[in-house]
Design a protein around this nucleic acid. Structure first.
Lengths: 228, 228, 228, 228
DNA sequence: AATGAATGAGGGTTCATTCAT
DNA sequence: TATGAATGAACCCTCATTCAT
């Protein structure tokens, strides 16, 4: 079905090499020579495919982000409830980063630094993902699943910030070993923080009694024994 | 009382200029000439005070981080309870970053990228702060304030990640306007997520009645009206 | 027959310019800009061909020394006797230096100073030449042409030192005009100093006389008049 | 008798440090800071005593050469014959270099390179020494001790070149260990090369015979057996 | 389409030297 | 007199980028 033209293949090779090298050394420290050597082409050839070093940098997240986002978008409609969706989105983020550590590193450490990246189409895709997450949070609020006073932007910042922090930490210090195992604790924690209280209103108990009893003389409230 | 030697003043000027310019353009894009010009000295003079461009970069966080941390450390003993302390620490972080946006930017976008920064004394101070936060979380767990199954490292990552994300967002997109106003919502949210349940044991109500009454025939539980 | 690639030609041009300028001003005082300008290329181009200024310096003697040495090696087998060989070697040295005064100057004044030069392949060639000379002296000793108590290392030092001194003198003071005319006097002088005495055995003269003569009563030895 | 003013002492200290450092690293590689630090003074102080780095360099040989030369000049009148004098001069050179290896190194490797050194008063002194040597050789020629066809300039070049070569060799390669032990072999060798032949004129043998003998009919010259 | 070759532009860094104190 | 402090002036080297083949 797909017919990978040699042209496209070459392009792919260059992008892969660029990802590896940019991720390892950063944008400034990496050189075109290095990348072209890794890709098995000449310097000049890189410029046949990309107008400049920066354009090559920006070309990297385009595909991978796109793919990841679209996949998530496909799954979402099958899930019921804001909580499930939110958990799925987080899972998707973390899975993507876990499976593409170089890409994660590039995004976290090198692309976020770059002001020009914000004007990029690739960034548009990133932003789409962030919007999806925001929409999901808002949906939870509107549906009463999340507290009405939840600040959806803050919640999103918490989620994204945590993921980013974990990725960065993992890259620079090797910790945590397995980010995926942290998805559930993290989501649980945040959900606990924003979940609407389970109608824990005050409750009146009306006793309908027959007979000639008086009102109770004393009411003793006795805590049951805690059984840990 | 303090007699700021002209030498120290000049050093300060250079650091300030460097902070402004590194924060704006990043380490690689900034040039020594630019910085020295901004500081009103010659290129060579910069090298009288700092051995290299990188050493100049690392000299920046040294003071400002130190000051901020030490201040927090002073306040902490006066606070009772893990929650208060945690809130104070977050407040301290955000205040520091809010008051020194350039510094915040430098740390978030440019220093974290730099592997050599991890070997720096300045980074040691940063790490101290992170340890302080972790200790506070652990204290909450030990004292029963926070749930026993709380992962303190995860909680710290959530807190730090959120702060970092907010700073970065503010720097790159101007949002949120006022980070300080987000401290309480954020801390509240996280605390809700980790707070130990408030002894929500089962409760038995014993009615001591006199007379010949029978047991109540029906018990109707009526929610009170919610008054938002 | 030979097809000098433009690449090789350019390289040659750069080396020639470098030789001229290094010889004139010394390694430190010479600048790459100067050399590249003289060679009609850009600074960066010099670095396409040579990794560093020092490597460029070391590339200079490589060829010229090699050529000179190999030529001498070819001639040597045709010569009989240590004296002829030694004279040929000296002749070769002096010819090389006389024909390449800049090269001579570079070697004498600037390369010998450089400790790194000693690790160079070019220096290996120089050392080869010195070994060749030493071997020739030893051969003369072994064959009885030179005195048995000759110190071959000292003789070599005398020869090389003299050549070097003459070159340096010529470069700095213009004297002597023609080094080649000094080769024979110099070699003669040294040979006189190391030549084994020419079988100066005692000689008996037997006079066969007829008649009744007695043995001679007196023998008078009369020096002939000296005729300068 | 001598009253070393503190000023002169300081000057001396600077010169000594400069000698050590120039000799070790060469003129260009050495820095004023290094020298001043070694001398225990400030950079600026060096400039109180010497107008420039180069002037400091040239100040070094002034004294030491002067002293060495003057000493030789004192001894010379007591020696009889060109050979003794020549030997004494060589001895003096080598002793000076052997006792002051740093100075030797400086002269051989770094001062000879410097064109400006030729204009220096210090060089005048060096030249004086060379003239003294030349005069001595000429004296030997005039007195009939050395061959009439000796080229005194060539002989001087041989002597100086050899000494220089030995010094350089010793500095760069550690060989020869002891230069002084080479003085006699070296001088012997050169003297053998230039010594006037010991009146090995043609000799006539007059036989005064009595009796009636005829002239000898045959004369047979018979070499004696060699006794190795 | 691919590249070998060339380079313009620029930046970090060093140091000899000066001068006010 | 001695020096702490400051700097002007260079230079080596790198690399993204271009272009003729």
């Amino acid at each position: 079905m797909t017919k990978p033209s040699p042209k496209a293949l070459r392009r792919e090779r260059i992008i892969e090499s660029a990802l590896a090298i940019f991720a390892e050394k950063g944008f400034q420290e990496a050189t075109i020579s290095e990348i072209s050597r890794a890709a098995g082409v000449s310097d000049a050839t890189v410029y046949e495919y990309f107008k400049s070093k920066e354009e090559l940098l920006f070309a990297i997240p385009e595909e991978i982000t796109e793919i990841s986002i679209r996949e998530t978008e496909k799954v979402l409609p099958y899930l019921r409830g804001a909580e499930s969706k939110l958990r799925a989105i987080v899972q998707s983020y973390v899975t993507t980063y876990e499976n593409n550590p170089e890409y994660a590193n590039l995004i976290m450490l090198h692309l976020k630094t770059n002001r020009n990246f914000l004007k990029t189409r690739a960034f548009e895709v990133v932003r789409d993902a962030a919007r999806m997450l925001l929409a999901c949070i808002k949906e939870g609020i509107d549906s009463g699943t999340f507290r009405r006073d939840t600040d959806p932007y803050l919640v999103r910042s918490i989620i994204l910030g945590t993921i980013e922090h974990l990725c960065t930490r993992k890259h620079l210090q090797g910790q945590p070993e397995n980010m995926l195992s942290l998805v559930d604790p993290m989501v649980d924690l945040i959900l606990s923080g924003i979940r609407a209280p389970q109608e824990q209103q005050n409750i009146s108990i009306h006793l309908h009694m027959t007979g000639t009893a008086k009102a109770p003389e004393t009411i003793t409230i006795v805590p049951e024994e805690r059984k840990p």
